[in-house]
Design a protein around this nucleic acid. Structure first.
Length: 208
DNA sequence: CGGCCGATCCACT
DNA sequence: GTGGATCGGCCGA
């Protein structure tokens, strides 16, 4: 088998297994953030299919989490997406330049989300390289949240997209990630969140 | 309205 | 290690 284009499931896109809605509806956003390591984030933007293995995530635990955009129930036209039922994308503009992609989880009214902070490119590498303007792929080209969106063609206008839909979704391709391969740490860039800044809500996949 | 600032990245020293 | 890029969201007046 030369490529990773292996038929391992039959659902929606006819080739791979999309993570089902129930995956996103679970209560514990921290657990889901851990589960997302090793899953595959796929986009088909303007007919171009690109994907990557998720290697880094951060959980944002809703109204009680001072680091979350939805802290204290803050409901605005931007954060409204987080309050919807899990299984959709929350994408917002950061520093005026970067679109940051999040997975919304939990039931309607519980604004939990997971920031995807890193991937390892899997499919559509030429298209990814074209988007990021590099000649050859290096893992550090997709090891930050802004870089993830740039590589996969995700824009903040995609906020609210259904993850069972045709443009952005996640797949399980059977990549095993054991506890030994997971590193846990506090979240990045949330110093403003007081005591919540130290919560161990960041997960990284150790891979060689 | 006006002003501040962010769940970042990269080039440069 | 530092600073500039760059602009929508948010809050206060």
């Amino acid at each position: 088998m030369a490529k990773r284009e292996v038929k391992i499931g039959l659902k929606n896109d006819g080739y791979h297994m999309k993570l089902p809605q129930e995956f996103y509806l679970r209560e514990d956003v921290v657990e889901i953030a851990r589960d997302l390591l090793g899953k595959v984030l796929v986009t088909k933007i303007n007919g171009i299919r690109t994907s990557g293995i998720i290697t880094e995530t951060e959980a944002y635990a809703g109204k009680e989490d001072r680091a979350s955009h939805a802290y204290d129930g803050r409901l605005t036209s931007r954060t409204e997406v987080m309050f919807r039922q899990g299984g959709i994308a929350y994408v917002y503009l950061c520093y005026g330049i970067h679109s940051l992609f999040n997975v919304v989880t939990n039931k309607s009214g519980s604004p939990h989300a997971i920031l995807i902070r890193g991937i390892q490119a899997l499919e559509g590498v030429p298209a990814i390289l074209k988007r990021i303007g590099k000649p050859t792929y290096q893992p550090n080209y997709t090891n930050g949240p802004g870089k993830v969106s740039k590589a996969l063609g995700i824009h903040f206008s995609h906020s609210g997209e259904d993850l069972q839909g045709p443009r952005i979704w996640l797949e399980d391709r059977g990549i095993q990630v054991t506890k030994q391969n997971i590193e846990v740490s506090p979240r990045i860039g949330v110093d403003y969140a007081a005591e919540d800044a130290l919560l161990p809500y960041r997960f990284l996949m150790r891979y060689t």
